[in-house]
């Protein structure tokens, strides 16, 4: 049986991990490669690097991080943040990333998803969707790190429709972040995850809101997500990847131990 994936996410700025990463056994918890290795040793199923830098100089630093990680971690690695073109993607894939994630660039130029899928295969292309509940009872896509609603043809872009569109265009996976739940530690948005997961035929990674282990059970079972992504609950040393997996197994959710 296909197991549910547990995916730690590392925010990287100028070659260093930002937000606290607490590894008792690491000499340098700010080095993304050291953190990646620590998560690898904890049994993480995949890893995401989110590059939050702005300049191309610093982006070269990210290429170096990916290259060094690929020498020591034998698990799938996704790189997201600031990736706009097929050329940007190629750079990261050649450095050793297995997948690249696009967000805002795909909204302004949806063809980039088609181009990337045909250049590298859809398995490499993750489309990240930041969604926020609206007063109509559905969810709107947001851009620029969740600051602006995405507008298309004069209307707010609907998250479910957008998910179905990128699936058709060749995305291999959706990384779905609830702007309402993100940072609250009050649990994932189960309605959002379930609705998107049922609207597409590709896997959905749930993100935003993880505060405890039961939240992960909820989103994988009731939210119908295929994987969970989490940052702070791992970085601050509250739980290890192993803790999450043992808890999920207790609740009859298939995991790789």
């Amino acid at each position: 049986m296909l197991t549910k994936r547990i995916i730690p996410c590392l925010d990287v700025h100028d070659g260093r991990v930002v937000k606290g990463t607490k590894f008792l056994d690491l000499r340098d918890a700010g080095d993304p490669v050291e953190c990646a290795v620590a998560y690898n040793n904890q049994g993480a199923d995949e890893l995401v690097f989110l590059d939050i830098t702005a300049t191309s100089d610093e982006r070269r630093t990210m290429v170096d991080v990916v290259e060094r990680t690929a020498e020591r971690c034998f698990m799938p690695v996704t790189v997201g943040g600031g990736i706009r073109t097929v050329a940007d993607m190629r750079k990261m894939l050649l450095a050793g990333a297995d997948k690249v994630s696009v967000n805002t660039a795909a909204i302004f130029n949806p063809e980039v998803v088609d181009e990337a899928a045909s250049a590298f295969g859809c398995q490499c292309i993750v489309v990240a969707i930041d969604a926020k509940r609206n007063e109509r009872g559905s969810w709107t896509v947001y851009t620029h790190g969740g600051r602006k609603p995405a507008i298309r043809d004069g209307k707010e872009l609907d998250a479910i429709e957008w998910a179905a569109e990128v699936c058709k265009r060749g995305a291999g996976e959706i990384l779905l972040t609830s702007m309402d739940a993100d940072g609250t530690k009050a649990g994932y948005d189960l309605g959002l995850n379930r609705t998107v997961s049922e609207a597409v035929t590709i896997p959905v990674i749930a993100s935003g809101g993880a505060g405890n282990l039961d939240h992960m059970v909820d989103v994988l079972r009731d939210g119908k997500a295929d994987a969970v992504l989490a940052a702070s609950i791992f970085h601050f040393g509250e739980y290890t990847v192993g803790d999450v997996k043992r808890h999920l197994q207790k609740h009859d959710i298939p995991v790789r131990l």
């Binding site: 049986m1 296909l2 197991t3 549910k4 199923d45 035929t201 590709i202 896997p203 295929d226």
Partner: peptide, 15 residues
């Protein structure tokens, strides 16, 4: 085969 609830690609860790 296309089946309700079956995600394609088959992506992740399996036995």
């Amino acid at each position: 085969p296309a089946q309700p609830g079956l995600k394609i690609p088959h992506m992740g860790w399996n036995k």
